[in-house]
Nucleic acid binder design. Structure first.
Ligand SMILES: [Zn+2]
Ligand SMILES: [Zn+2]
Ligand SMILES: [Zn+2]
Ligand SMILES: [Zn+2]
Lengths: 167, 167
DNA sequence: TTTATCGTGTTACAATATAACACATCGATG
DNA sequence: CATCGATGTGTTATATTGTAACACGATAAA
């Protein structure tokens, strides 16, 4: 996990140095692509950078709008979706199913399950450690007889910042 | 939870008496609507019944197709979505975000979080007990500072039946 | 140079969901 | 009984999210 997050919480502080998040995410992406012999093309890198524009999930069509900024032509949906598919495949981003939106992965260096806390007020999405849940998952495998391959958790509520504001 | 499920697993056995599932689901729905002073209209009841047609999530447009069977006219999307909204609101059904589809709630008598195991082969979706996960959730609340209001888990894998078939 | 592979451009379309407004039903109230 | 308000439905149009199919271009291996 990146180290420039609030020490008291896994949620990024509103005042944190977010450029550092972007830089380290892009650096990690380049490294991962080198390792896996995949090409981080201009389009893919731009999409990843835009996704890392915030810690909030962003939709495919918003990404198209963002890509269009300062350009002559808009890209068509397939262009964005191909980039998203590539980034998803490599684990550089996650899809938030409840929002039809995409967010950067905090730690793409190894595959992992998709566990998120999502603020219903400001849309902040924080990736969390699946570890503490694995005992319950094991039990569930036993009881259900399912061969669980993918875990996806999306919890909603108020982030620390929005809690303060709502008091 | 209904009692006509396989004793060895929380997954419904392929040969179980499914009509009993439908009947008890509809009975529970009528009771809940009476308690909450809500009207289970013809459309709403029909939609609920169709959703309970299987233990697989079904999409809104498939429901529209099913509603059209043997009828002169097709209903328009808003009709189905209104019924779905009503049923979701009352907790009679759940939405499976990863599939854009809807499935009957196993136990609508009290509010609870949405925890599902979903078979990637046959689409069987089994609702599971959030209980074993709550210790980890508490810890997560502490560490994240989030006020968690809603929990949604969707785990994918092979159901017991499909595991056997794939061996 | 040829060929194969990969990434992109472009057009059209599919699938899911909602907005807005008209109408009908029905029970409460006068 | 007559009227009113609340709720549910019908209807049309449209928004939002995502894909299929095929053509083109760059790159790199043979
Ligand atoms: Zn940041
Ligand atoms: Zn927030
Ligand atoms: Zn059944
Ligand atoms: Zn199965």
């Amino acid at each position: 996990m990146p180290s420039n997050l609030d020490a008291q919480s896994i949620a990024p502080h509103p005042d944190h140095d977010h450029q550092a998040c972007i830089d380290s995410a892009l650096a990690a992406a380049r490294e991962l692509c080198r390792d896996k012999q995949q090409k981080l093309t201009k389009t893919r890198e731009k999409v990843l950078q835009l996704i890392w524009g915030s810690h909030r999930p962003i939709g495919a069509y918003s990404l198209m709008d963002a890509l269009a900024e300062g350009e002559q032509k808009r890209v068509a949906p397939p262009t964005v979706y191909r980039a998203l598919d590539f980034l998803l495949e490599l684990g550089l981003i996650h899809r938030i199913n409840s929002l039809n939106a995409y967010i950067g992965c905090q730690d793409p260096s190894h595959e992992h399950h998709c566990y998120f806390l999502i603020c219903t007020s400001c849309n902040l999405a924080v990736e969390t450690d699946p570890g503490p849940f694995q005992a319950a998952v094991s039990q569930l495998k036993q009881q259900s007889g399912f061969a669980i391959r993918q875990q996806n958790m999306e919890f909603n509520g108020l982030c620390p910042h929005c809690r303060e504001l709502s008091e």
